[in-house]
């Protein structure tokens, strides 16, 4: 595959503080790639800033959540015939210079989905004790299910190949998409691979997961995973 068509999908909800920086970094490091910002009903000037940067902006009519937002991006990628789609967060925690590491295994046909992991050596991410307990529980549960070692199950820094793009366009989980997508892909027989990446602190906004809610979040995600196992795909 020579010069595959690459689409960078950036889901954004009220990210006016960081979107500009993310867009210019991606353009600088990957000038060949097209960029689409999926604006999930932001109330701020996220969409305006992105349009001024000259990228395609898909505007949801109302806030639909991260799952539906990613899926809109995958539907766009699928219909426009992109061979590779890369998910990059709009808050600046996914450095553009790491994107190529994600794309490479997909181009070489070594995996359908490549997940960028903070825990494989690159960078020096040190989560809090409670957080690392949660991360290791997710990691162990998901690894056991898909029979492949996944260290960073909640990472939203990913590259998907053609087959995976088409699958996501039709089926993408709603509530906890990062973790659930891994389980669904495994059920469909897609191959998943992790590569070490460095991530930075978010530039603006804050994580949707606050410490107080993290236990509740964990229980819900674990439940969702087991429900996914029962689901017909």
């Amino acid at each position: 595959m020579k010069d595959p068509k690459i689409l960078i999908i950036i889901p954004a909800f009220n990210e006016q503080a960081s979107i500009q920086g993310v867009l210019s970094a991606v353009k600088k490091h990957l000038p060949v790639a097209d960029i689409v910002v999926v604006n999930d009903g932001s109330a701020d000037s996220t969409a305006l800033i992105a349009e001024k940067e000259g990228v395609v902006v898909l505007n949801h009519p109302y806030n639909m959540g991260i799952g539906a937002t990613m899926q809109t991006g995958y539907k766009y990628a699928s219909r426009k015939g992109y061979e590779i789609a890369v998910q990059v967060d709009a808050d600046g925690q996914h450095p553009a210079d790491q994107i190529e590491k994600l794309i490479e295994p997909v181009v070489k046909g070594r995996a359908d989905l490549v997940v960028g992991s903070r825990f494989l050596g690159a960078g020096e991410y040190k989560p809090s004790l409670a957080r690392s307990a949660g991360i290791s529980i997710f990691s162990n549960v998901v690894s056991a299910i898909i029979r492949e070692r996944v260290t960073d199950t909640t990472s939203g820094f990913r590259a998907a190949g053609r087959r995976c793009i088409d699958f996501f366009a039709g089926h993408y989980p709603d509530d906890y998409p990062e973790v659930e997508a891994l389980v669904l892909l495994h059920k469909k027989g897609f191959s998943i691979m992790e590569v070490p990446v460095r991530m930075s602190e978010r530039e603006g906004g804050r994580s949707s997961i606050t410490p107080i809610r993290s236990v509740y979040y964990m229980v819900k995600v674990l439940l969702a995973i087991f429900v996914d196992l029962l689901k017909k795909v």
């Binding site: 604006n39 969409a47 395609v56 898909l58 949801h60 009519p61 639909m64």
Partner: peptide, 24 residues
């Protein structure tokens, strides 16, 4: 339905038709 509306609006914008609403 909402995703289709979103994608349709982009397709229309590409064709030079502005339907208004949220965004550009």
């Amino acid at each position: 339905l909402s995703q289709e509306v979103t994608l349709l609006k982009e397709a229309l914008r590409e064709a030079g038709i502005n339907v208004g609403g949220k965004g550009k």
